[in-house]
Design a protein around this nucleic acid. Sequence first.
DNA 1: CCGAATCCTGTTTGATACTG
DNA 2: CAGTATCAAACAGGATTCGG
Lengths: 114, 114
Amino acid sequence: MESSEPACQYELLAARDALEVIQGKWRIPIIISLTYGTKRFGEIQRDIGDISPKMLSQELKALEANQLIRRKLLAESIPVSVEYSLTPLGISLKGLLVELRLWGRHFRTAMIKS
Amino acid sequence: MESSEPACQYELLAARDALEVIQGKWRIPIIISLTYGTKRFGEIQRDIGDISPKMLSQELKALEANQLIRRKLLAESIPVSVEYSLTPLGISLKGLLVELRLWGRHFRTAMIKS
DNA sequence: CCGAATCCTGTTTGATACTG
DNA sequence: CAGTATCAAACAGGATTCGG
């Protein structure tokens, strides 16, 4: 007694795999910021604008654990210097990010007209 | 004192427009289910498998309010009959959903190998 | 400058039971 | 069948303070 087409179930599984990693208010914005180059903690925070250091720290760790970004310690001295960049896996999100940007624009346009 | 490239800011805005609408644990799964055709409440629930009626009802309302899906009352009699389907705006998410599925697969493969 | 640690709050999500 | 009501749990997010 199947509840639906197998193709639908397959797509639902793949989507949920992806969502588990990139879901949340901040992860996509962080990744977008890093697609424009290697950045420091403060630079990412300024890009996004309204993220607290706590959330940024927390989400950077989660993204690093999932191997989407890489953390590089530049200098142990005070002040400390750290750099974040995308891994190949993070870079592979490019197609998704393009679609997201396109649809975001499309949605806003549609909302204005209606 | 600009904080980053304008292109980055532009992309961040568009992405956040999109995320506001499709974010959350259930919205994408619901939309995926409906890309496979018009469905009833119970059918969507069975497709997704582990969503409570409360959450499904709540998220369907949100998606309808954003004009991604359409609700059609088929019969007032008991039992009631209702159908949900994608609007053109909902259908326009297709490209994004394809990328999401592709990346979900890619991510899982990458995780297994590492 | 780059965070870590704590505390606190509101929202999201879920389990369960119930109704037209 | 298609939801609603209620209650409880989990989590996201913010404010503040602190340290290397």
